[in-house]
Design a protein around this nucleic acid. Structure first.
Length: 430
RNA sequence: GGAUGGGUGGCCGAGUGGUUGAAGGCACUGGUCUUGAAAACCAGCAGGGUCGCAAGGCUCUCGGGGGUUCGAAUCCCUCCCCAUCCGCCA
């Protein structure tokens, strides 16, 4: 959520950002609406003041035992006017709120113009593997191992589900544990095991509601399956006022995520790239506004470290305007090399959301300053995948596959795989 | 799911229709005292909105929303949350 006052003071900056994003709401609409709202508000408040004065008079008169009938009659008519004024002020207020709730964050100045093709490649790391044979796709490998079953998953749950078994099931668990260990022991994140079902307010707080309702799964009791652990993790600070010295707060969680994938019909239909349910290790930082830029680098580095340790080739890109999510002022994507597709595919998305989410969930911090007492201010929130576990498994299978169909396990994972080095072509761990 | 009791400022807690945005305490900030610290004492200390150059004014907020009333933290309705007991259950 943006601050209407900020928009009032910076209409050009707001419009420039909206234009870059390809949005069609501009400052003038909002400012006009806000002006009307404020006029109505003033009117309403004057009537409230009058009401309060008269009510006090009545109270005083009664205390002295005097007759207050005349004042009471006046008060009664004020009451009628007031209810009309309140109704129109509230209506305008609601209109403005509804509009603001759907407006995306203001883009950082560094964000390049354009769409998907216009991302800036920040760095490219690791060695793209060369194969002396035609590399297979992860789903071919997994099915050949007998450890990945899309057909049965479809029978049980429908399209966009998968069943992992044996070594692959274990591999997913190992990856989650490995990632959590790195983040908690090396990057200062606290491991959290959050709820996977959340209320409207939580989703509103992180910005999935009201605009992206159709991407979520809603349960029969009006709770939502989390599309990412970003939702419960960021909401950990909702309605809090954190002391300055407690910043930054860093949280990580290994959870399942659920997405309806409405509107992505036909995309990534094969394999486990795009599923209704997938596991992810999420990173969330709650930061001081002056430190948030730096915190984004810290968070992204944590995610990159996983890729590096796993020996996967990847690149880091800065998303262009139209590809940057509504919450974010700036987003880095990490893309991992997938031999079967011969290209880099998103495996992590690390965003600085500035105070956009904090405003929605009223998450603040109290500045600590000598002598002077300052008002609480909104924190900055950041989130990133560190990493998408399902896609990491995909990348491992493809990048570490051997010609005979076996898959070598990277060194760092072996302690998490009972010391085993390889998944053999018949699906055994050895 | 049933029953009961609760939700008040950063925290604890008083307050059951009338100048109560709210006693008291803790925490915090400043000061006095002290070589320094502690203690003691004095003072300050909620947030949002809106008007105003400012000083400051007005207004809203006692879990959320709605209602009764000239006037609501206090009465009514509804929803949410917490606690305890019973039932059910991984």
């Amino acid at each position: 959520m943006l601050d209407i006052k900020w928009i009032r003071d910076n209409p050009e900056a707001f419009d420039a950002s909206q234009k870059s994003r390809g949005q069609d709401v501009f400052a003038k609409t909002l400012i006009d609406l806000d002006e009307e709202r404020r006029a109505l508000l003033t009117e309403m408040q004057e009537l409230q003041a009058l009401r309060n004065t008269l009510a006090k008079e009545i109270g005083q008169a009664k205390a002295k035992g005097e007759d207050a009938a005349e004042v009471a009659a006046r008060a009664s008519s004020v009451k009628t006017d007031l209810s009309v004024a309140e109704a129109s002020a509230n209506e305008r207020q609601q209109q403005l709120q509804d509009l603001l709730a759907r407006i995306p964050n203001v883009l950082d100045k560094q964000v390049p113009e354009g769409g998907e093709e216009d991302a800036t490649v920040v760095s490219t790391q690791g060695q793209v593997p060369e194969f002396s044979f035609e590399p297979k796709s992860h789903d071919e490998i997994g099915e050949a191992l007998g450890l990945m079953d899309f057909a049965k998953a479809a029978q049980i749950s429908g399209a966009r589900f998968v069943i992992l078994k044996g070594a692959l099931s274990r591999l997913e668990r190992a990856l989650g544990a490995f990632m959590l260990d790195v983040h908690t022991s090396e990057f200062g994140y606290q491991e959290v095991n959050p709820p996977l079902l959340v209320r409207d307010d939580a989703l509103f707080g992180t910005g999935q509601l009201p605009k992206f309702e159709e991407d979520q799964f809603l349960t029969t009791d009006q709770r939502w399956l989390i599309p990412t652990a970003e939702v419960p993790l960021t909401n950990l600070v909702r309605e809090e006022v954190l002391p300055e010295e407690k910043l930054p707060q860093r949280f990580t969680a290994f959870t399942y995520c659920f997405r309806s994938e409405a509107g992505s019909a036909g995309r990534d239909t094969r394999g486990m790239i795009r599923q209704h349910q997938f596991s992810k290790v999420e990173l969330v930082s709650i930061a001081h506004p002056d430190e948030s830029e730096k915190e984004l680098e810290h968070l992204t580095k944590a995610a990159e470290t996983i890729l590096q340790r796993l020996g996967l080739a990847y690149r880091k890109i800065l998303l262009a305007a139209q590809d940057t999510g509504a919450n974010a002022s700036k987003t880095y994507d990490l893309e991992v090399w997938l031999p079967s597709q011969g290209c880099y595919r998103e495996i992590s998305s690390c965003s600085l959301d500035t105070d956009y989410q904090a405003r929605r969930m009223n998450a603040r911090w109290a500045p600590k300053s000598e002598g002077k007492k300052e008002k609480p201010r909104f924190v900055h929130t950041l989130n990133g995948s560190g990493l998408a576990v399902g896609r990491t498994l995909v990348a491992l299978l493809e990048n570490y596959q051997n010609e005979d169909g076996s898959v070598t396990l990277p060194e760092v994972l072996r302690p998490y795989m009972n010391g085993k080095k390889e998944i053999t072509s018949d699906g055994q761990l050895v």
